[in-house]
Design a protein around this nucleic acid. Sequence first.
DNA 1: CGGCCGATCCACT
DNA 2: GTGGATCGGCCGA
Length: 193
Amino acid sequence: MNKLQKSFYLREDVVQIAKELLGKYLFTDLNNDGVTGGIIVETEAYAGVIDKASHAYGNRRTTRTEVMYMEGGVAYVYLCYGIHSLFNIVTNVKDIPHAILIRGIKPVEGFEVMLKRSAKPKMNDKIGIGPGNVSKILGIHFSQSGESLTGNSIWLEDRGLKILFSKVISGPRIGVDYAGKDASLPYRFRISL
DNA sequence: CGGCCGATCCACT
DNA sequence: GTGGATCGGCCGA
C-alpha cells in the first residue's frame, strides 16, 4: 500500500495538489463496515484567505473553519443545505487555510456497503458523483471534521494510476457565483475514466 | 437570541 | 428545468 504521506499535503500550491489528486484513491474504514473507496475523478481548489469562494476568505476564523487552519493532511467536513456533508482535504502548513473539495469518485472497493449507504436501487459509476454523494457512500459525516488523513479511518493512496493531463478538464467552480471575479477562476478539475 | 441561507440532490413535470 | 427538503452556523441586534 502506498498511502499518501503528510508531506504530500503540506505543499503550498493548492491548485497543483487539486490536479494531482485526480486518479488517486480515497478510502474509508468507518463504523466497522469494512474498507470502502474509489478513484478521485473531480476536485475543486479553495485557495484560502484571498479566495472569496472559500469559507476562510479574509482570514475568517470560526469553530467550523478552524479546521482549515490546521496543518495539512486532515479532513474538513461541513454540512451544506442542512442535508449534505461535504468532504474537503486540508492542505498547506498550519495557519494557511487551503482546502480541496472532492466532488466525485469512481467506486472500486466495498461496492455492497457503498450501495447500501447511497440508498440507490442499483450499482453504477454515478453513485459517487457529486460532493454530497461522495461523503454519503464513504460514510463520512461532518462530525469527522478534523480527522487525520494519514490514519486508519480515512486515507488516500497512490496506486500508480497515470492521468494524462490532456484528459483533465478544468473550469470554474460550482455554486460560487457570490465570489465575484474569483468565481471564474479555473479551479475545478475532472477526468472521465 | 432569531432569522437567514448555503461549495446540493432528487423526484417530478 | 425546477422546486422542495432540511439544519447548523454565522451575523446582526
